[in-house]
Design a protein around this nucleic acid. Sequence first.
DNA 1: GTGAAAGCGCTAACAT
DNA 2: ATGTTAGCGCTTTCAC
Lengths: 337, 337
Amino acid sequence: MAATLHDVAQLAGVSIKTVSNVVNDYPHVRTATRERVQAAIAQLGYQPNLSARTLRSGRSGVIGLVLPELSLSYFAELADAVIAQAELHGLVVIIERTGADRARELAVLSSPRMRMTDGVIFSPLGMGQADAHFLEVDFPLVLLGERIFGGPVDHVTMRNIEAARAATEFLLGSGRQRVALIGAHPDEDLGSAALRLEGYKEALASAGVAYDPELVRSTTLWHRANGAAATRELIDSGVDFDAVFGLNDALTLGVMRVLQESGRRIPEDVAVIGFDNIEEAEYAVPSLTTIDPGRELIAQRAVDLLVQQIGSGAQRPEHPTAETVGFEVIVRESAPA
Amino acid sequence: MAATLHDVAQLAGVSIKTVSNVVNDYPHVRTATRERVQAAIAQLGYQPNLSARTLRSGRSGVIGLVLPELSLSYFAELADAVIAQAELHGLVVIIERTGADRARELAVLSSPRMRMTDGVIFSPLGMGQADAHFLEVDFPLVLLGERIFGGPVDHVTMRNIEAARAATEFLLGSGRQRVALIGAHPDEDLGSAALRLEGYKEALASAGVAYDPELVRSTTLWHRANGAAATRELIDSGVDFDAVFGLNDALTLGVMRVLQESGRRIPEDVAVIGFDNIEEAEYAVPSLTTIDPGRELIAQRAVDLLVQQIGSGAQRPEHPTAETVGFEVIVRESAPA
DNA sequence: GTGAAAGCGCTAACAT
DNA sequence: ATGTTAGCGCTTTCAC
């Protein structure tokens, strides 16, 4: 049986409160007493029972991170950053996978498991704007991503439209005229895909290039395999193109793969730009020009906002903040300047 | 304030015990009573307080997964598999990053945070065989990886020697003679690197090919960048080689990148094989021939063993099992048959 | 089939 | 500066 505060108190010949004071670094403890207690703690190998502490104090020191899946590199790297940032605040992270499934996302929001945590960082991919009211929960919550705007919670997001516009302008600026876009989600009005498509259209318009729906290709999840498949369809359709904007990097690596299989040279025949700046983009062949959407900063701000909410004790922020972080075009070989 | 069992009991006009029985699906409750209780639960939006349940029952429903970092694709995909498997058992997963640092690995083992969980799956990368006794902890623990063998805990591992031997034999069998190995850890006697190096040597010996230390290159962590750097050194050294065995895929993608920069064709000039079968291996250019070490199976067995330990209630398994899962050579373009 | 009561280990008032 | 005491919300005997 593990030692309790009681055992330590008994061995040290003090009250349980004094032991608690020592454990919690309460300052007003005589040095002699403190040392006696510390000796007893060491002798018994005492470790505080966090469940009891949680029950009593209402704080678990655990936050939840809810995301689609870790095998998507973007989310793995995001999770890594969130865990590191949480650690700075003495928090550990429970990860819940939703598989981008709306029903599972809703279920997680109302599960007692999440109520056990001190707060949740939530990156939905299945829910949409109409589900905003489900975010009215009674625990601290920070929303990530582009599925829901103007909701009742703090929100951290990237500049999708501006970044996509910059990506497209970068391709047009390097002399390309027929820019294909891969990864659209036609049934979406919001969401990363819709926003990035909008940025793409804005760039075309402002450059005076006609929008050609033939050049826009849809996929479901942004996996390599889907990027590859969509590119095969694009090629088979016979439409002419000299550049590709892939809506995320994983997808775009699949795109590059198929372009090269088809004998096209990158960037000579087709320039390619991605979105996310995952680690492998730098080591792809050719290395992938892409958008760095500020993932580290997003993780940092999300944790900070959550910690702030937890600390405020308020049920919900009166004025939910909507923060956006900056982006950057990372120029590599697949689309030189 | 959230509703408690008490509130529900009062509203339903029954005792707290009866509510508890309903919540926990205890069979011997009259239907009428059950329905009344369920109505009260619904009306109050009651959700059990998991901290209280944990304190009382000694079970948290949380397991820990301790690993180097999630931005290494192998570990991200492993974590994804562990979380999915844990979910099947109704468990959630806390992820702790150690950065492959021995001190942090040891710290995690003795932290109260881990004692709060029902058990831990631990993948060390900094600890070594001499640290085996630190694994004698008083909570359920399953060890992954190749750093420590014969320890006092259940252990799930891959067939490093055999798989590395198979990889090397595959290259030799396709007519290569000068097989470089990248990613060695010279100061290791155990560990994935040492074991895979041993498999490499075995293959050379049994094929009657002399072992040339010039062909063996070290790196620290198996990141893309390190694979790239080691390959540059290999090339600069002027030594002759016609194949590369990279000790993991991430590293090997860096290798391929540099080989191609240097004007070498893969596989015509240099055949390349990796180890891990991460998702991007399939979409690399050229696609990467590699070893599938059975990651999914490892995750599955690890969780199952942990659940078994948790269920047994025993302090430690009397006869720790050491399980190995099978591997497979995945043939792709970088090293055809 | 249901109720009463004890107590898991801790923190937080309050008392001294 | 230290001790006493009352719960946090639940599960779990043990009655009835």
